[in-house]
Simulated assay, not measured.
Amino acid sequence: MSRFDADDPRERRKLFADAIAAHRTRASAFLTLEADHDPEIDGEDSPAPWVQFAESTFNLDVDDEELAALNDLVDDFPAFRIDQLESPEEAEGTNVRITARSDANRLATFADRVFLEVYGRDDDYRAWVTAI
């Protein structure tokens, strides 16, 4: 593991919270979190799942099944709401924007649960902070 990746649930959430805090401190345009590619879950030709965060908005791409799981997950976070769904004709999925006003730890918990519950990762998946 490095300072920019983690595969233990507690360390992953700490990594995500630290990245969110750094994003806010630096006033960067966005931060990107990414899970390791798993061909069995993602398919051979599909990219690894990612989640972006900017200011108070999560941005992610999902298919129909993942969108249903995401809706259920957002229900667990009363201060979060899905604000925008975009499904361009040339795309196979939906881009989702979620307003999420909360502290870094709560945002980190949400991001981790997205990878676990929406993208189907196991508890020991490796996540990376790929951009801050």
Rank of each mutant, 00 (worst) to 15 (best):
M1W: 08
S2G: 15
R3F: 09
A6R: 09
A6M: 01
A6G: 04
A6T: 00
D8Y: 08
D8W: 04
R10T: 14
R10H: 07
R12V: 12
R12K: 15
R13M: 15
L15N: 05
L15C: 11
L15K: 03
A19W: 01
I20H: 03
I20G: 06
I20M: 08
I20C: 00
A22S: 13
H23P: 07
H23C: 06
R24T: 11
R24F: 06
R26I: 07
A27H: 14
A27W: 08
S28R: 11
S28W: 03
S28Q: 12
A29G: 10
L31N: 08
L31S: 09
L31Y: 02
T32S: 14
L33C: 08
E34C: 12
A35Q: 03
A35Y: 04
A35D: 07
H37C: 09
D38G: 02
D38E: 15
D38W: 05
E40H: 11
E40C: 00
I41P: 01
I41D: 04
I41W: 02
D42K: 09
D42F: 04
D42W: 03
G43Q: 01
G43M: 07
E44L: 13
D45T: 00
D45S: 10
S46C: 09
S46H: 12
S46G: 05
P49S: 07
W50G: 01
N59L: 13
L60P: 04
D61A: 14
D61H: 14
V62P: 03
V62F: 06
V62C: 00
V62N: 09
D64C: 00
D64N: 12
D64V: 04
E65M: 07
E66W: 02
L67A: 10
A68F: 12
L70Q: 08
L70N: 02
N71T: 15
N71M: 09
N71H: 15
D72Q: 14
D72I: 00
L73T: 09
D75C: 10
D76N: 12
D76L: 11
F77Y: 15
P78T: 02
A79F: 01
F80Q: 06
I82F: 04
I82H: 05
D83A: 09
E86D: 13
E86W: 01
S87R: 15
S87A: 14
P88S: 06
E89G: 08
A91K: 08
A91I: 01
G93T: 04
G93V: 05
G93D: 04
T94R: 11
T94G: 06
N95M: 13
V96S: 10
V96Q: 08
V96Y: 06
R97W: 14
R97A: 12
R97I: 00
R97Q: 15
I98R: 06
T99W: 00
A100Y: 03
R101V: 14
S102T: 09
A104W: 00
A104C: 08
N105I: 11
A108G: 04
T109G: 14
F110Y: 07
A111E: 01
A111G: 09
D112T: 05
D112V: 05
R113V: 00
V114H: 06
F115R: 02
Y119M: 08
G120S: 10
R121M: 03
R121H: 08
R121A: 04
D122A: 15
D123F: 03
Y125C: 14
R126I: 01
R126Q: 11
A127K: 03
A127R: 02
A127M: 07
A127T: 04
V129R: 11
V129M: 04
V129W: 02
T130W: 01
A131C: 09
I132E: 11
I132Y: 13
I132Q: 06
